[in-house]
């Protein structure tokens, strides 16, 4: 009997039911970098609005939000975002930050992509040499970008024996690539956080629009899903766009890695959302 009371107490003591929180669906790459843990507490302190972060792939984040189960999204797949907007599921699309995708692979670089200045040529070299390549295979933003790069290069790697689909998150995919001596496409943040343990080198790390990784915020359309916390989502957007917060985003972990994990965009999109 005592045990039961203890359990009831424990359950009641769990936070987060105190006030309806804002549900933000975002990608694992953003969440796992720790950026949100660094900037969201300030928002909650100022507004009293707690935020719940659900970290999934971009595809799943948009699927959850597209059923009205999240109030806002922070994602990085312009094509999927455009579709989300055209389906009238999202509003207030705003570009918040960018970084870049990197092509990483074994330091020996068997396909010889290290000196390539055109990322499409790098992909073509991998294809021609048949060097192993690990794909996320999971509809994440990174996966969507990888697919569009193969397509732009005019190649179809699916079904080739050297083309592996991991079906897991970025960190696990990097580990897999490291173990297999394979190439993979990664976001900058995840790679910087994990690279000390990996036998992987950044082989294409250039300022190329095709490798631009753009993070956007959308609020879920309250006309379509009347229960969403639209005002709270708007407040969060305003907070994220504030100059001091944008600066904090840019400074996040810069001292540790010597470069910005996220460069603030202040609302100006570089990649077209279409």
């Amino acid at each position: 009997m005592k045990l039961r009371w203890l359990l009831a107490l424990l359950l009641l003591a769990m936070p987060a039911w105190a006030r309806p929180p804002l549900v933000l669906a975002t990608t694992t790459s953003v969440n796992d970098s720790g950026l949100l843990d660094a900037i969201l507490p300030g928002f909650t302190r100022e507004t009293g609005i707690p935020v719940r972060v659900i970290a999934v792939g971009t595809g799943q984040a948009l699927a959850i939000a597209g059923r009205g189960d999240a109030d806002a999204v922070l994602v990085h797949a312009p094509h999927l975002e455009a579709r989300f907007l055209s389906e009238k599921k999202g509003v207030l699309h705003t570009c918040l930050a960018k970084n870049r995708f990197l092509l990483v692979g074994p330091p020996t670089d068997p396909a010889g992509v290290r000196w390539e200045t055109n990322v499409l040529n790098a992909f073509r070299k991998i294809y021609l040499t048949g060097a192993p390549f690990v794909s996320r295979g999971d509809n994440s933003g990174t996966y969507v970008r990888e697919q569009s790069l193969w397509k732009a290069a005019g190649l179809k790697p699916q079904g080739k024996p050297w083309y592996l689909e991991s079906g897991s998150g970025m960190g696990a995919t990097l580990t897999l690539a490291s173990e297999k001596g394979a190439y993979t496409l990664t976001d900058l943040g995840t790679f910087l956080f994990t690279k000390t343990r990996l036998k992987l080198a950044a082989l294409f790390d250039r300022d190329d629009p095709r490798m631009l990784n753009q993070y956007s915020f959308m609020a879920v359309n309250p006309k379509r899903f009347p229960w969403v916390r639209f005002n709270e989502a708007k407040a969060l957007l305003a907070y994220l766009l504030r100059p001091d917060v944008q600066a904090a985003i840019g400074d996040y972990q810069r001292a540790r890695f010597g470069r910005s994990l996220f460069e603030p965009l202040g609302g100006k999109c570089i990649l077209p959302v279409r």
Binding site: P15, D37, V53, S168, M170, F193
Partner: peptide, 20 residues
């Protein structure tokens, strides 16, 4: 797997593994 709300030991293990 929401931090401070629904994160439990198993999902935390998955998260840390994913982060490497």
């Amino acid at each position: 797997d929401i931090r401070h709300a629904t994160r439990v030991l198993t999902t935390a293990v998955v998260l840390e593994t994913r982060k490497g």
